[in-house]
Design a binder for these strands. Structure first.
Lengths: 129, 129
DNA sequence: ATGTAGATGAAATAAATTTTCAATTAGTTG
DNA sequence: CAACTAATTGAAAATTTATTTCATCTACAT
């Protein structure tokens, strides 16, 4: 999802676009799986309360998503595909692009309409093996 | 992973098997994605501190895993495959068994040795559509 | 049975998150 | 474009969640 789409969703659901919200959105969009600390560092002038509230609002609207990769909560834009490799040795996380999902085997048959997904693959990185 | 395997891992890494740890392990094993509240309800006689410490220990040992499905942290046995359908409308979560991953497309080539994974599929359940 | 390193839990502490509420502002309306 | 209003912000307080401390206890090796 592009930033513009996110802003459209926000406005479309009757919320105001404030400079704070824009800053936070940009912070989350800038890189994958941002921690609270990452986000607050990128938004030094936005009050903590607003950061928490905005992350909750954006999550509820389905614009961003909270994920767990081993340490605390992290946030990402709720785009179609996220794939993470998580090393159980050193805790390092890297993304990869190529989607290993077989669409044929997705459970759409149950009446569930799939919009996006997040995949966490656990194992050992080459350094830790 | 069966409970026995988990116990083996725990002991094998030089930790003691206490009744508290066993209770907590059983609580996590009993059902998928258990919340802190779920776990504490199932372990009423185990002190809060021990619950937190044990969940951290078991996570570090790779026996259990912390995941995020929309509300707070949840815990599961770190078995090979977990697949969740998360409705963005009502927040409901259901599991499904059939693994939609195409092993061929997993990034083992990068020297990463895959041991397990967790997949979260977001969308709308039939009721919310 | 005994010894001991490791484990537990109550209390205190710290960290993370939410609520409250007065002041501010985005976006509409005249 | 000035005025209005409901939504938003943020400082402080409150609450919730998680960790540290430390005296006591116990699993398990001997």
């Amino acid at each position: 999802m592009r930033l513009e789409t996110a802003i459209g969703k926000l406005r479309g659901s009757g919320h105001k676009l404030t400079p704070q919200r824009l800053t936070i959105l940009e912070a989350v969009a800038e890189e994958q799986h941002q921690s609270m600390a990452d986000i607050r560092n990128r938004c030094p002038r936005v009050g903590m309360v607003t950061v928490y509230r905005t992350l909750n609002l954006l999550s509820e609207l389905g614009i961003i998503r909270r994920i767990e990769l081993g340490d605390g909560p992290r946030y990402e834009l709720a785009t179609g595909c996220h794939h993470h490799l998580i090393c159980e040795g050193c805790g390092n996380v890297v993304e990869f692009e190529r989607c290993p999902l077989d669409r044929e085997r997705l459970p759409e048959a149950q009446g569930f309409e799939v919009s996006s997904h997040s995949l966490e693959i656990y194992g050992l990185c080459s350094a830790c093996r």
